[in-house]
Write a protein that binds this DNA or RNA. Sequence first.
DNA 1: CGCATCAAGTTATACGTAACACTTCGGCGG
DNA 2: CCGCCGAAGTGTTACGTATAACTTGATGCG
Lengths: 339, 339
Amino acid sequence: MPGVTDTARPTSRDVARAAGVSQATVSLVLGGKSRGRVSERTAEAVRAAALALGYRPNLAARNLRLGRTRTALLVVPALTNEYFARVYTGAARVAAEHEFGVVLYPSPDGIGPARDPFGSARASLDGVIASSMAADALDAIGGGDLPLVMLDSDPGAAGAGATVNFDIADGMRQVARCLLGLGHRRFTHMASAVDTWTFHVRAAALAGTLAGTGDVTLHTERSAHSVEDARLAAERALTRPGPRPTALVCDDDILAAGACKAARRLGLRVPADVSVTGFDDLALATAVEPELTTVRLPADEIGGRGMAALLAVLDGRPANSADLPVELVVRGSTGPPAA
Amino acid sequence: MPGVTDTARPTSRDVARAAGVSQATVSLVLGGKSRGRVSERTAEAVRAAALALGYRPNLAARNLRLGRTRTALLVVPALTNEYFARVYTGAARVAAEHEFGVVLYPSPDGIGPARDPFGSARASLDGVIASSMAADALDAIGGGDLPLVMLDSDPGAAGAGATVNFDIADGMRQVARCLLGLGHRRFTHMASAVDTWTFHVRAAALAGTLAGTGDVTLHTERSAHSVEDARLAAERALTRPGPRPTALVCDDDILAAGACKAARRLGLRVPADVSVTGFDDLALATAVEPELTTVRLPADEIGGRGMAALLAVLDGRPANSADLPVELVVRGSTGPPAA
DNA sequence: CGCATCAAGTTATACGTAACACTTCGGCGG
DNA sequence: CCGCCGAAGTGTTACGTATAACTTGATGCG
């Protein structure tokens, strides 16, 4: 039996032929638009034929016809940071529920020319979600006319159709109050060297909360987001002239892990000699010893809400954007300072 | 001046009109096929017009016309594992060099119905790269007629157009020889509970290498890939009746981090009382104290090579598939056993 | 001079889908 | 009995691109 295998994918016309109807009817039935237009018996025959042939609509043709792709772009600074991997996971889950796809643009300065970061792929997107981006990076991204949702970013930024944020300030206030309550008075803010809104908020909330108490000192040390950089920065903070800080408030768990390493290398115990706090609640936070006191940011939820907001914008619905609550998780890296 | 703003994206026909040529000529010039077909002066005019209008080809139309999408699917078990995030990054980098895109399918049992994991998206892919998948998961993925490249997987598996692997066995042999050389004789293999080729190879290589030395014991304890599960498993291993193992050989760094926690909880010092080794060399490996001795797997490189192999298969070229070398990185979590 | 050749384009078409506009036909009220 | 209406489909077109097939002058050569 030569020529029996038909390697080409079946088209809607093949389905129509098999079901004895026209291609238009196939499109109506499989598109769910057959109510009152096609009899139930015919519709069932079409569905059966499609199933038998293993028909899958050609997305390129559909996209061309509809002018939409049901695909969103998610821009994150670095996918290898577990936080952003979780943002992606949450966004992809919600997208899948609405038959949307998510493509990633993981490192704005890592792949492709800066002038046109996404290449012509941009022309095949319905919208963009950008997480924790600097305002100028937003230019490179939002230059297009695509709907844009920003996550963990300045709500007042231009160009964003919607913004979804954590209540970051509340998280930092909880950290500060917790440490103040333990008796700490000398603080160092282990701040991210990245110049974005979320880290500005953390700095302001920390300074603002500590300002309410007299007799408190606060220094700032900046670091890139790697354990090694953070260790070096924390060693600077712990060895600078003057009274040693008793609390290192870190902008994320990676910095906090580095801070713990620095303390240990200097012969200081955590938390007896120095307390350390983080942000994010990554797997890392419970892998190190002692486990990190940290602010849990539900990353997958902000990703999911971001996707939901984008879908709302695409539908012309209003995207409600209340801040997501965060939670301070107290573990072993914090304690009262030594007398 | 009403109606001046033209919000619709320009098409190749708009460019043709602006340059005073036909749409076909635009396609030839921008497609790089103009050698000997279009004069340089005309070609330059077309390029200028395209630039002036900000023309971007419509990918849906191109895909429909060509029947190819220049998009590959990468299937990984869990993107939140830094290892797989790096695989993605490497694959995406090589893809971008060839104007390819990569979409992710991060969790085979997490998103979408198992029957048709990718939905109709499958119809818009040129190929699939699957990393570290079980043989049965391969069925769900490779069911289509798409070219398939497998990473870190059984080279003899059916259906794979190519396989790219690490020399995992060599890595494990290095671990075993290092520990034997330090004087260890009682081993526990902290094995992954995941039933895949790469972990079978690790178990076999460990057992095989230790078998060469007399007077050696090897037990196996299984664990899921979380620090907490690994801690519990390691506590079982360290408290079972009989002489305590002096070396915990772990299938990855996450398990190793859990093993270190278990030792600490039991009042054992690492490495004085028990040595611990990992696999992968994640950021985690240098975040914990002591830093982990581990086998560095260049994850981004296997991702890149996998993408290159897929591109080769798509071009009809042979995909060369030598195993990638791995490197034992000796750090503080290993040492001679206590006398 | 005349025919072949060649550069430099243009015309026309197909990819597979969605949806608008149209047809056909049975039933039903006036 | 006529006209109208709704149900059930069908014919046709357009989306934007890439390319095969064709056209048109100009040139070279015997």
